[in-house]
Amino acid sequence: MKRLFTKQNLHNSSFPGLLLLLLLCIIVSTRYGAVNISVGEMISALQKLAGNEELTLNERIFIGIRLPRALLSAVVGASLATGGTLMQALFRNPIVEPGLIGISSGAAFGAALYFVAGAGFGFYTGEWTLPLAATLGALLAAALVFVLSTSKETGKRSVISLLLTGIAVNALFMSGVGFLSYTARDPQARSITFWNLGTLSGASWKSLLICTTVTLSCIVWSLRYAKQLNSLMLGEEEAQHLGVNTRRLRLQILILNVVMVATCTAFVGVIGFVGLIIPHFLRMLLGSDNRLLIRNSAVAGGILLSLADLSARMLLRPAELPIGIVLSIIGVPVFILLLRKKTYYF
């Protein structure tokens, strides 16, 4: 008898399977919330939208709030999880997160500066000011890591110096965030705290469009590096012997990760853990081949974050929890349970 659950079958069916699951999660995530929306209402809303007809209240909630939010959570999850997979492969280290090279702390600093200075000095603040400030902060921090980790003598950048410089720059920017929230008055300090725990409540079709365009193109682009990232598992020299230009590869992967993660972080705040747990989970399930891991981590990240956002909205309904807290409460125990199964080696 042919075995149904062979490794090959698992490898082939994982991507379509996860994609189907993601679709289901998005539908469930749009269905439930402070107000429940039936599938019938979803369909009629889409039909009316196409026919330019007047929408009911529930249909307006579905089109204007629920749907962009569910989709944005999937896209952000994809971005963070893929970033995590790429960075772990690049650094050959399973504890690396996409925010490592300063992105999330830089973004947090930019956002904190916006909350404190923007409110304190009465700057003009439109809907794009916050994401812009966060993006600039992220890019500044990443650039700082790049420059500072380059050796003065050889002009080269070693993985270990990148890692350590990343940690140092993160610490610097986080203390900047700490200083700003310490000096800030209460509502601003709360805004900073909330932003650092992440929320998808600001989702709109515009932010969705930007995040989707950037994330999808970065993920598709990164697929071409899967093979080279695999050979990097043997070490940098061995990869070179297999014909890989490791310096160029590193630069390209870092840039892809910065662009993708900075953009998403700018719109939803700092969301940790997704970029760490998803690559681990998939590696347990599918092995370490990056050709499988990259695309699957994109979809699995989307699933995790859309479920987390659903829980964030449902647990204290009608109030909302920050998504970072939900991820930690549910995700950490699950993650530790998985790690304690002794099937995984380093």
Binding site: R92, N230, M233, G235, G243, G287, F346
Partner: peptide, 28 residues
Amino acid sequence: ARIRAVLSQHIDLAFPLRVEEVVMMGRY
């Protein structure tokens, strides 16, 4: 890389891989 291979003394993998996958890397 297609005509010249290098074997070093001690190679460690950062992640678990099946033996077949390691050998397949030679074909990259």
